[in-house]
Design a protein around this nucleic acid. Structure first.
Length: 424
RNA sequence: GGAUGGGUGGCCGAGUGGUCGAAGGCAGCAGUCUUGAAAACUGCCGUAGGUUUGCGCCUACCGUGGGUUCGAAUCCCACCCCAUCCGCCA
Protein backbone atom coordinates (compact mmCIF):
# COMPACT_ATOMS: atom_id res chain seq x y z
CA UNK A 1 0.00 0.00 0.00
CA UNK A 2 1.22 3.45 -0.85
CA UNK A 3 1.39 6.09 1.86
CA UNK A 4 -1.74 8.21 1.88
CA UNK A 5 0.03 11.52 2.44
CA UNK A 6 2.33 10.74 -0.44
CA UNK A 7 -0.69 10.13 -2.66
CA UNK A 8 -2.47 13.32 -1.64
CA UNK A 9 0.58 15.53 -1.81
CA UNK A 10 1.82 14.08 -5.11
CA UNK A 11 -1.46 13.25 -6.78
CA UNK A 12 -0.25 14.08 -10.27
CA UNK A 13 2.91 12.00 -9.96
CA UNK A 14 0.91 9.09 -8.55
CA UNK A 15 -1.59 9.33 -11.39
CA UNK A 16 1.24 9.36 -13.91
CA UNK A 17 2.76 6.32 -12.20
CA UNK A 18 -0.55 4.43 -12.35
CA UNK A 19 -0.75 5.22 -16.03
CA UNK A 20 2.80 4.01 -16.66
CA UNK A 21 1.99 0.76 -14.94
CA UNK A 22 -1.27 0.28 -16.75
CA UNK A 23 -3.35 0.42 -13.58
CA UNK A 24 -6.66 2.21 -13.71
CA UNK A 25 -7.58 3.90 -10.45
CA UNK A 26 -9.27 7.06 -9.38
CA UNK A 27 -6.65 9.10 -7.58
CA UNK A 28 -8.72 12.28 -7.80
CA UNK A 29 -11.59 10.68 -5.89
CA UNK A 30 -9.20 9.49 -3.24
CA UNK A 31 -7.86 13.00 -2.73
CA UNK A 32 -11.36 14.45 -2.41
CA UNK A 33 -12.57 11.67 -0.08
CA UNK A 34 -9.52 12.11 2.12
CA UNK A 35 -10.26 15.83 2.39
CA UNK A 36 -13.79 15.01 3.54
CA UNK A 37 -12.52 12.34 5.89
CA UNK A 38 -10.15 14.70 7.68
CA UNK A 39 -12.93 17.26 8.15
CA UNK A 40 -15.14 14.52 9.57
CA UNK A 41 -12.34 13.26 11.78
CA UNK A 42 -11.87 16.68 13.31
CA UNK A 43 -15.58 16.98 13.93
CA UNK A 44 -15.66 13.53 15.54
CA UNK A 45 -12.74 14.27 17.80
CA UNK A 46 -14.17 17.60 18.85
CA UNK A 47 -17.52 16.03 19.76
CA UNK A 48 -15.74 13.28 21.65
CA UNK A 49 -13.66 15.79 23.53
CA UNK A 50 -16.77 17.69 24.59
CA UNK A 51 -18.49 14.48 25.62
CA UNK A 52 -15.48 13.48 27.73
CA UNK A 53 -15.57 16.86 29.40
CA UNK A 54 -19.26 16.51 30.24
CA UNK A 55 -18.74 12.99 31.56
CA UNK A 56 -16.16 14.24 33.99
CA UNK A 57 -18.65 16.71 35.43
CA UNK A 58 -21.23 14.04 36.24
CA UNK A 59 -19.25 12.74 39.20
CA UNK A 60 -19.08 16.27 40.59
CA UNK A 61 -22.78 17.08 40.21
CA UNK A 62 -24.09 18.58 43.42
CA UNK A 63 -27.67 17.29 43.21
CA UNK A 64 -29.68 14.75 41.28
CA UNK A 65 -31.40 17.24 38.99
CA UNK A 66 -28.11 18.67 37.79
CA UNK A 67 -26.79 15.14 37.46
CA UNK A 68 -29.66 14.04 35.22
CA UNK A 69 -29.33 17.11 33.09
CA UNK A 70 -25.62 16.57 32.61
CA UNK A 71 -26.16 12.93 31.70
CA UNK A 72 -28.67 13.94 29.04
CA UNK A 73 -26.24 16.45 27.58
CA UNK A 74 -23.50 13.82 27.56
CA UNK A 75 -25.70 11.30 25.80
CA UNK A 76 -26.56 13.83 23.14
CA UNK A 77 -22.91 14.52 22.48
CA UNK A 78 -22.05 10.82 22.35
CA UNK A 79 -24.81 10.19 19.83
CA UNK A 80 -23.58 13.03 17.67
CA UNK A 81 -20.06 11.68 17.92
CA UNK A 82 -21.14 8.15 16.99
CA UNK A 83 -22.95 9.46 13.92
CA UNK A 84 -19.93 11.47 12.83
CA UNK A 85 -17.68 8.50 13.49
CA UNK A 86 -19.83 6.29 11.31
CA UNK A 87 -19.64 8.72 8.43
CA UNK A 88 -15.91 8.94 8.91
CA UNK A 89 -15.53 5.15 8.85
CA UNK A 90 -17.50 4.91 5.63
CA UNK A 91 -15.22 7.46 4.01
CA UNK A 92 -12.22 5.54 5.30
CA UNK A 93 -13.49 2.35 3.67
CA UNK A 94 -14.04 4.06 0.35
CA UNK A 95 -10.55 5.54 0.48
CA UNK A 96 -8.95 2.21 1.31
CA UNK A 97 -10.68 0.55 -1.60
CA UNK A 98 -8.99 2.96 -3.95
CA UNK A 99 -5.73 3.14 -2.05
CA UNK A 100 -5.23 -0.61 -2.16
CA UNK A 101 -5.36 -0.58 -5.96
CA UNK A 102 -2.63 2.00 -6.35
CA UNK A 103 0.67 0.29 -7.21
CA UNK A 104 4.04 1.11 -5.74
CA UNK A 105 6.13 3.94 -7.15
CA UNK A 106 8.59 2.96 -9.85
CA UNK A 107 12.37 3.10 -9.89
CA UNK A 108 13.64 5.78 -12.30
CA UNK A 109 15.60 3.27 -14.41
CA UNK A 110 12.66 0.93 -15.02
CA UNK A 111 11.77 0.87 -18.74
CA UNK A 112 8.26 2.05 -19.57
CA UNK A 113 5.90 -0.34 -21.34
CA UNK A 114 4.79 -3.96 -21.27
CA UNK A 115 6.33 -7.39 -21.63
CA UNK A 116 8.11 -6.55 -24.89
CA UNK A 117 9.68 -3.43 -23.47
CA UNK A 118 11.75 -5.16 -20.80
CA UNK A 119 15.42 -4.28 -20.94
CA UNK A 120 17.96 -7.07 -21.29
CA UNK A 121 20.77 -6.36 -18.84
CA UNK A 122 23.14 -9.16 -19.71
CA UNK A 123 23.78 -12.83 -20.15
CA UNK A 124 25.08 -15.53 -17.84
CA UNK A 125 28.50 -17.14 -18.08
CA UNK A 126 27.27 -20.31 -19.75
CA UNK A 127 26.75 -19.86 -23.49
CA UNK A 128 23.62 -21.16 -25.17
CA UNK A 129 24.72 -24.54 -26.45
CA UNK A 130 24.17 -25.73 -29.98
CA UNK A 131 23.51 -29.44 -30.08
CA UNK A 132 24.83 -31.60 -32.90
CA UNK A 133 21.80 -33.82 -32.39
CA UNK A 134 18.06 -33.23 -31.99
CA UNK A 135 17.63 -32.23 -28.33
CA UNK A 136 14.70 -33.64 -26.38
CA UNK A 137 12.42 -31.63 -24.13
CA UNK A 138 12.31 -32.39 -20.41
CA UNK A 139 9.19 -34.55 -20.79
CA UNK A 140 10.88 -36.82 -23.29
CA UNK A 141 13.95 -36.95 -21.09
CA UNK A 142 11.74 -37.69 -18.12
CA UNK A 143 10.10 -40.52 -19.99
CA UNK A 144 13.43 -42.00 -20.88
CA UNK A 145 14.74 -41.92 -17.30
CA UNK A 146 11.46 -42.41 -15.49
CA UNK A 147 11.60 -39.04 -13.74
CA UNK A 148 7.99 -37.79 -13.66
CA UNK A 149 4.48 -39.18 -13.47
CA UNK A 150 1.96 -36.56 -14.55
CA UNK A 151 -0.84 -39.05 -15.12
CA UNK A 152 -0.66 -40.27 -11.56
CA UNK A 153 -0.53 -36.65 -10.41
CA UNK A 154 -3.75 -35.97 -12.31
CA UNK A 155 -5.41 -39.07 -10.83
CA UNK A 156 -4.56 -37.94 -7.33
CA UNK A 157 -5.02 -34.17 -7.47
CA UNK A 158 -6.06 -33.25 -11.01
CA UNK A 159 -4.24 -31.79 -13.99
CA UNK A 160 -1.23 -29.70 -13.08
CA UNK A 161 -0.04 -31.99 -10.31
CA UNK A 162 2.68 -34.58 -10.70
CA UNK A 163 4.93 -37.04 -8.97
CA UNK A 164 8.70 -36.75 -9.17
CA UNK A 165 10.50 -40.08 -9.29
CA UNK A 166 14.00 -41.49 -9.04
CA UNK A 167 16.73 -39.00 -10.01
CA UNK A 168 14.23 -36.16 -10.28
CA UNK A 169 13.68 -36.48 -6.54
CA UNK A 170 17.41 -36.49 -5.93
CA UNK A 171 17.83 -33.51 -8.24
CA UNK A 172 15.01 -31.64 -6.53
CA UNK A 173 16.61 -32.18 -3.14
CA UNK A 174 20.09 -31.41 -4.44
CA UNK A 175 18.92 -28.05 -5.77
CA UNK A 176 17.40 -27.19 -2.42
CA UNK A 177 20.50 -28.29 -0.54
CA UNK A 178 22.81 -26.38 -2.83
CA UNK A 179 20.74 -23.19 -2.71
CA UNK A 180 20.35 -23.26 1.05
CA UNK A 181 24.05 -23.83 1.61
CA UNK A 182 25.06 -21.08 -0.81
CA UNK A 183 22.66 -18.62 0.81
CA UNK A 184 23.83 -19.55 4.28
CA UNK A 185 27.35 -18.59 3.21
CA UNK A 186 26.00 -15.26 1.98
CA UNK A 187 24.46 -14.37 5.32
CA UNK A 188 20.89 -15.56 4.78
CA UNK A 189 19.32 -17.39 7.72
CA UNK A 190 17.63 -20.56 6.50
CA UNK A 191 14.06 -21.10 7.65
CA UNK A 192 11.25 -23.42 6.74
CA UNK A 193 7.87 -21.73 6.72
CA UNK A 194 4.24 -22.72 7.02
CA UNK A 195 2.69 -23.66 3.69
CA UNK A 196 -0.53 -21.92 4.74
CA UNK A 197 -1.08 -18.33 5.75
CA UNK A 198 -3.92 -16.16 6.98
CA UNK A 199 -5.82 -14.03 4.48
CA UNK A 200 -4.65 -10.90 6.28
CA UNK A 201 -1.03 -11.84 5.64
CA UNK A 202 -1.76 -12.50 1.98
CA UNK A 203 -3.31 -9.07 1.68
CA UNK A 204 -0.37 -7.47 3.43
CA UNK A 205 2.01 -9.04 0.98
CA UNK A 206 -0.10 -7.90 -1.97
CA UNK A 207 -1.93 -11.12 -2.82
CA UNK A 208 -5.68 -11.38 -3.13
CA UNK A 209 -7.11 -14.82 -2.29
CA UNK A 210 -10.63 -14.14 -3.57
CA UNK A 211 -11.93 -13.12 -6.94
CA UNK A 212 -11.90 -14.62 -10.42
CA UNK A 213 -8.27 -13.77 -11.19
CA UNK A 214 -6.80 -15.21 -8.03
CA UNK A 215 -3.78 -17.46 -8.07
CA UNK A 216 -4.47 -18.59 -4.54
CA UNK A 217 -6.02 -21.74 -3.17
CA UNK A 218 -8.17 -20.72 -0.20
CA UNK A 219 -9.29 -23.21 2.42
CA UNK A 220 -13.05 -23.04 2.60
CA UNK A 221 -14.66 -21.70 5.78
CA UNK A 222 -11.35 -20.60 7.24
CA UNK A 223 -9.00 -17.65 6.99
CA UNK A 224 -6.25 -19.94 5.70
CA UNK A 225 -4.77 -20.15 2.22
CA UNK A 226 -2.10 -22.26 0.59
CA UNK A 227 0.85 -19.99 -0.04
CA UNK A 228 1.84 -19.13 -3.60
CA UNK A 229 5.38 -18.35 -2.48
CA UNK A 230 7.37 -18.18 0.75
CA UNK A 231 7.46 -14.43 0.16
CA UNK A 232 4.05 -14.42 1.83
CA UNK A 233 5.09 -16.24 4.98
CA UNK A 234 8.51 -14.64 5.24
CA UNK A 235 7.04 -11.16 4.94
CA UNK A 236 4.35 -12.07 7.43
CA UNK A 237 6.94 -13.44 9.82
CA UNK A 238 7.51 -9.98 11.30
CA UNK A 239 4.03 -8.52 10.78
CA UNK A 240 3.16 -5.98 13.44
CA UNK A 241 6.71 -5.88 14.78
CA UNK A 242 8.89 -2.87 15.46
CA UNK A 243 12.57 -3.66 14.86
CA UNK A 244 15.75 -1.87 15.91
CA UNK A 245 17.59 -0.17 13.07
CA UNK A 246 20.77 -2.06 14.05
CA UNK A 247 19.05 -5.37 13.31
CA UNK A 248 18.69 -4.43 9.65
CA UNK A 249 19.10 -5.84 7.17
CA UNK A 250 17.53 -9.15 8.15
CA UNK A 251 18.23 -11.69 5.42
CA UNK A 252 16.27 -14.92 5.32
CA UNK A 253 16.08 -17.83 2.96
CA UNK A 254 12.88 -19.78 3.19
CA UNK A 255 12.05 -23.21 1.95
CA UNK A 256 8.43 -23.79 1.09
CA UNK A 257 5.99 -25.39 -1.25
CA UNK A 258 4.16 -23.04 -3.58
CA UNK A 259 0.59 -23.55 -4.72
CA UNK A 260 -0.98 -21.70 -7.64
CA UNK A 261 -4.34 -22.15 -9.29
CA UNK A 262 -3.06 -20.67 -12.56
CA UNK A 263 -6.55 -19.34 -13.17
CA UNK A 264 -6.70 -17.59 -16.52
CA UNK A 265 -3.57 -19.38 -17.69
CA UNK A 266 -5.47 -22.05 -19.63
CA UNK A 267 -4.70 -20.39 -22.95
CA UNK A 268 -0.98 -20.31 -22.34
CA UNK A 269 -0.77 -23.67 -20.68
CA UNK A 270 2.69 -25.08 -21.11
CA UNK A 271 3.55 -28.71 -21.14
CA UNK A 272 5.32 -30.49 -18.36
CA UNK A 273 6.80 -28.91 -15.28
CA UNK A 274 6.79 -25.34 -16.54
CA UNK A 275 3.39 -24.25 -15.26
CA UNK A 276 2.09 -26.46 -12.46
CA UNK A 277 -0.13 -26.10 -9.41
CA UNK A 278 2.53 -27.03 -6.89
CA UNK A 279 6.29 -26.68 -6.76
CA UNK A 280 9.09 -26.24 -4.29
CA UNK A 281 11.10 -23.09 -3.92
CA UNK A 282 14.01 -21.69 -1.98
CA UNK A 283 13.24 -18.02 -1.54
CA UNK A 284 15.36 -15.10 -0.45
CA UNK A 285 13.68 -12.42 1.62
CA UNK A 286 15.02 -9.35 3.36
CA UNK A 287 13.86 -6.60 5.67
CA UNK A 288 16.04 -3.54 5.17
CA UNK A 289 16.40 0.14 5.86
CA UNK A 290 15.37 2.52 3.06
CA UNK A 291 19.02 3.34 2.42
CA UNK A 292 19.92 -0.35 2.09
CA UNK A 293 17.28 -1.74 -0.21
CA UNK A 294 18.69 -0.74 -3.61
CA UNK A 295 22.07 -2.33 -2.85
CA UNK A 296 20.41 -5.40 -1.42
CA UNK A 297 18.33 -5.75 -4.55
CA UNK A 298 21.53 -5.81 -6.64
CA UNK A 299 22.97 -8.34 -4.20
CA UNK A 300 20.00 -10.64 -4.65
CA UNK A 301 20.20 -10.36 -8.41
CA UNK A 302 23.90 -11.23 -8.23
CA UNK A 303 23.18 -14.27 -6.07
CA UNK A 304 20.64 -15.50 -8.60
CA UNK A 305 23.23 -15.06 -11.33
CA UNK A 306 25.93 -16.84 -9.32
CA UNK A 307 23.57 -19.69 -8.66
CA UNK A 308 22.59 -20.25 -12.24
CA UNK A 309 26.19 -19.77 -13.38
CA UNK A 310 27.10 -22.53 -10.94
CA UNK A 311 24.34 -24.70 -12.38
CA UNK A 312 25.91 -24.10 -15.80
CA UNK A 313 22.64 -22.94 -17.27
CA UNK A 314 22.54 -20.19 -19.91
CA UNK A 315 20.31 -17.29 -18.97
CA UNK A 316 19.61 -13.64 -19.56
CA UNK A 317 18.80 -10.94 -17.03
CA UNK A 318 15.77 -8.74 -17.57
CA UNK A 319 14.86 -5.37 -16.04
CA UNK A 320 11.08 -5.75 -16.06
CA UNK A 321 9.10 -2.95 -17.70
CA UNK A 322 6.67 -0.79 -15.72
CA UNK A 323 3.48 -2.40 -17.01
CA UNK A 324 4.65 -5.87 -16.01
CA UNK A 325 5.77 -5.19 -12.45
CA UNK A 326 2.86 -6.21 -10.26
CA UNK A 327 1.54 -3.93 -7.51
CA UNK A 328 4.12 -4.15 -4.71
CA UNK A 329 7.32 -4.03 -6.78
CA UNK A 330 9.33 -0.85 -7.19
CA UNK A 331 11.74 -2.68 -9.49
CA UNK A 332 11.99 -6.28 -10.59
CA UNK A 333 14.71 -8.32 -12.26
CA UNK A 334 13.97 -11.65 -13.89
CA UNK A 335 16.37 -14.39 -14.86
CA UNK A 336 15.23 -16.25 -17.94
CA UNK A 337 16.96 -19.54 -18.59
CA UNK A 338 17.43 -20.97 -22.04
CA UNK A 339 15.18 -24.00 -22.39
CA UNK A 340 16.10 -25.93 -25.55
CA UNK A 341 12.91 -27.99 -25.47
CA UNK A 342 10.52 -25.07 -25.22
CA UNK A 343 8.64 -23.96 -28.31
CA UNK A 344 10.29 -24.64 -31.65
CA UNK A 345 14.02 -24.86 -31.17
CA UNK A 346 14.13 -23.44 -27.66
CA UNK A 347 12.90 -20.38 -25.76
CA UNK A 348 13.80 -18.27 -22.80
CA UNK A 349 11.73 -19.18 -19.75
CA UNK A 350 11.52 -17.31 -16.45
CA UNK A 351 13.30 -19.16 -13.65
CA UNK A 352 13.75 -16.50 -10.98
CA UNK A 353 12.70 -12.99 -10.18
CA UNK A 354 13.74 -10.54 -7.51
CA UNK A 355 11.80 -7.46 -6.44
CA UNK A 356 12.44 -4.48 -4.28
CA UNK A 357 9.05 -3.63 -2.76
CA UNK A 358 10.35 -0.67 -0.75
CA UNK A 359 7.86 0.04 2.07
CA UNK A 360 4.77 -1.03 0.09
CA UNK A 361 4.31 -4.39 1.82
CA UNK A 362 5.65 -3.24 5.17
CA UNK A 363 3.04 -0.52 5.46
CA UNK A 364 0.18 -2.97 5.25
CA UNK A 365 1.96 -5.64 7.28
CA UNK A 366 2.92 -2.95 9.81
CA UNK A 367 6.62 -3.76 9.95
CA UNK A 368 8.57 -0.81 11.25
CA UNK A 369 11.95 -0.02 12.69
CA UNK A 370 13.20 2.41 15.26
CA UNK A 371 16.48 4.28 15.13
CA UNK A 372 18.15 4.84 18.51
CA UNK A 373 17.95 8.47 19.51
CA UNK A 374 15.28 9.29 16.96
CA UNK A 375 11.65 9.82 17.78
CA UNK A 376 9.05 7.68 16.06
CA UNK A 377 9.40 4.78 13.69
CA UNK A 378 9.78 4.19 9.97
CA UNK A 379 8.49 1.43 7.75
CA UNK A 380 11.04 -1.17 6.73
CA UNK A 381 11.73 -2.03 3.12
CA UNK A 382 11.11 -5.59 1.96
CA UNK A 383 12.79 -7.48 -0.86
CA UNK A 384 12.28 -10.92 -2.23
CA UNK A 385 14.01 -13.08 -4.77
CA UNK A 386 13.85 -16.62 -6.01
CA UNK A 387 16.98 -18.60 -5.29
CA UNK A 388 15.69 -21.76 -6.91
CA UNK A 389 12.24 -22.85 -7.98
CA UNK A 390 13.15 -26.49 -8.38
CA UNK A 391 10.66 -27.38 -11.12
CA UNK A 392 11.78 -24.80 -13.63
CA UNK A 393 15.43 -25.16 -12.65
CA UNK A 394 15.13 -28.86 -13.39
CA UNK A 395 13.73 -28.14 -16.85
CA UNK A 396 16.73 -25.94 -17.58
CA UNK A 397 19.24 -28.44 -16.22
CA UNK A 398 17.79 -31.51 -17.92
CA UNK A 399 17.35 -29.86 -21.29
CA UNK A 400 20.68 -28.00 -21.39
CA UNK A 401 22.82 -30.83 -20.04
CA UNK A 402 21.50 -33.68 -22.18
CA UNK A 403 23.92 -35.54 -24.41
CA UNK A 404 23.62 -37.31 -27.73
CA UNK A 405 23.37 -40.71 -26.03
CA UNK A 406 20.37 -39.54 -23.97
CA UNK A 407 22.25 -39.28 -20.70
CA UNK A 408 22.16 -36.04 -18.72
CA UNK A 409 25.17 -34.44 -17.04
CA UNK A 410 24.68 -33.23 -13.53
CA UNK A 411 26.23 -29.82 -12.82
CA UNK A 412 29.41 -30.15 -10.73
CA UNK A 413 28.01 -28.24 -7.76
CA UNK A 414 25.10 -30.66 -7.47
CA UNK A 415 27.14 -33.85 -7.79
CA UNK A 416 28.02 -34.06 -4.09
CA UNK A 417 24.31 -33.84 -3.24
CA UNK A 418 23.28 -36.24 -6.01
CA UNK A 419 26.01 -38.75 -5.43
CA UNK A 420 26.53 -39.21 -9.16
CA UNK A 421 27.82 -37.39 -12.24
CA UNK A 422 25.05 -38.11 -14.70
CA UNK A 423 21.57 -39.40 -15.09
CA UNK A 424 21.36 -42.55 -17.23
C1' G B 1 -10.48 -32.12 21.95
C1' G B 2 -11.40 -31.56 27.80
C1' A B 3 -10.01 -28.90 32.60
C1' U B 4 -7.81 -24.83 35.04
C1' G B 5 -5.04 -20.20 35.30
C1' G B 6 -3.48 -16.03 32.47
C1' G B 7 -2.99 -11.96 28.51
C1' U B 8 -1.68 -4.22 31.04
C1' G B 9 3.99 0.28 28.34
C1' G B 10 11.14 -2.45 26.08
C1' C B 11 10.73 -6.04 30.46
C1' C B 12 8.52 -7.15 35.51
C1' G B 13 4.12 -5.72 37.87
C1' A B 14 -0.30 -2.74 40.48
C1' G B 15 -5.00 -1.17 39.09
C1' U B 16 -12.72 -0.12 44.16
C1' G B 17 -16.74 1.85 36.58
C1' G B 18 -15.36 8.42 36.92
C1' U B 19 -8.70 13.69 36.06
C1' C B 20 -5.84 6.08 34.37
C1' G B 21 -2.23 6.76 29.14
C1' A B 22 -2.32 3.94 33.34
C1' A B 23 1.15 3.34 40.44
C1' G B 24 5.79 1.05 41.55
C1' G B 25 10.25 -1.37 39.95
C1' C B 26 14.01 -2.70 36.24
C1' A B 27 16.38 -1.37 31.82
C1' G B 28 17.53 3.09 28.74
C1' C B 29 18.71 8.53 28.14
C1' A B 30 20.31 13.38 30.30
C1' G B 31 22.29 15.69 34.59
C1' U B 32 24.34 16.52 39.90
C1' C B 33 28.24 14.50 42.90
C1' U B 34 33.33 12.08 41.72
C1' U B 35 40.23 12.61 39.25
C1' G B 36 37.38 8.59 36.59
C1' A B 37 33.98 4.68 37.48
C1' A B 38 30.44 2.66 40.87
C1' A B 39 26.82 4.09 44.40
C1' A B 40 23.36 7.84 45.62
C1' C B 41 20.17 11.68 44.05
C1' U B 42 17.22 14.71 40.15
C1' G B 43 14.72 14.91 35.54
C1' C B 44 13.24 12.50 30.95
C1' C B 45 11.61 7.95 29.14
C1' G B 46 5.01 4.11 24.49
C1' U B 47 2.63 4.14 19.51
C1' A B 48 -0.45 6.19 15.87
C1' G B 49 -3.51 10.11 14.06
C1' G B 50 -5.33 15.22 14.00
C1' U B 51 -4.21 20.44 14.84
C1' U B 52 -0.60 24.60 15.47
C1' U B 53 4.73 29.00 12.52
C1' G B 54 6.27 27.09 17.29
C1' C B 55 5.78 25.85 22.88
C1' G B 56 1.78 22.96 22.86
C1' C B 57 -3.15 21.12 22.60
C1' C B 58 -6.60 17.25 21.25
C1' U B 59 -8.18 12.02 19.94
C1' A B 60 -7.48 6.79 19.97
C1' C B 61 -4.96 2.49 21.82
C1' C B 62 -4.49 -2.00 28.57
C1' G B 63 -4.98 -9.77 23.48
C1' U B 64 -9.12 -9.07 19.29
C1' G B 65 -14.20 -7.95 18.12
C1' G B 66 -18.99 -6.80 19.95
C1' G B 67 -22.26 -5.18 24.13
C1' U B 68 -23.93 -2.48 28.80
C1' U B 69 -23.14 2.83 30.54
C1' C B 70 -23.32 9.82 30.31
C1' G B 71 -18.44 7.34 31.18
C1' A B 72 -14.97 0.70 30.67
C1' A B 73 -8.13 -1.58 31.67
C1' U B 74 -12.13 -2.38 35.30
C1' C B 75 -18.89 -5.29 34.11
C1' C B 76 -21.19 -8.87 30.11
C1' C B 77 -20.69 -12.00 25.48
C1' A B 78 -17.83 -14.22 21.59
C1' C B 79 -13.25 -15.28 19.63
C1' C B 80 -7.76 -15.58 19.57
C1' C B 81 -3.25 -16.52 21.98
C1' C B 82 -0.04 -18.28 26.12
C1' A B 83 0.92 -21.63 30.45
C1' U B 84 -0.07 -26.16 33.07
C1' C B 85 -2.59 -30.93 33.50
C1' C B 86 -5.44 -34.89 30.84
C1' G B 87 -6.63 -37.34 26.13
C1' C B 88 -4.90 -38.18 21.06
C1' C B 89 -0.82 -38.23 17.79
C1' A B 90 4.11 -37.97 13.59
Amino acid sequence: MLDRKTIVENADAVKENCHRRGVDCDVDSLVELERQRLAKLQQTQELNRQANEVSKQIGKAKDDAQRQETIARGRELRDAKDAAQKEHDQLEQQILEIQRLIPNLTHADVPTGGEDDARELGLGKTPVCSFDFQPLDHLELGERHDLFDFEAGARVAGAGFYFLKNDAVRLDLALQQYAVSLLSERGFTPVTTPDLALTEILHGTGFNPRGPETQIYAIENTELNLVATAEITLGGMLAGQTLDAEQLPIKLCGLSHCFRTEAGAAGRASKGLYRVHQFTKVEMFAFAGPDQSDDLHEEMRQIECDLFDALEVPYRVIDTASGDLGGPAYRKYDLEAWMPGRGDGGQWGEVTSTSNCTDYQARRLDIRFKTAGQKGTQFAHTLNGTAVATGRAMIAILENHQRADGTINIPKVLQPWMGKERIG
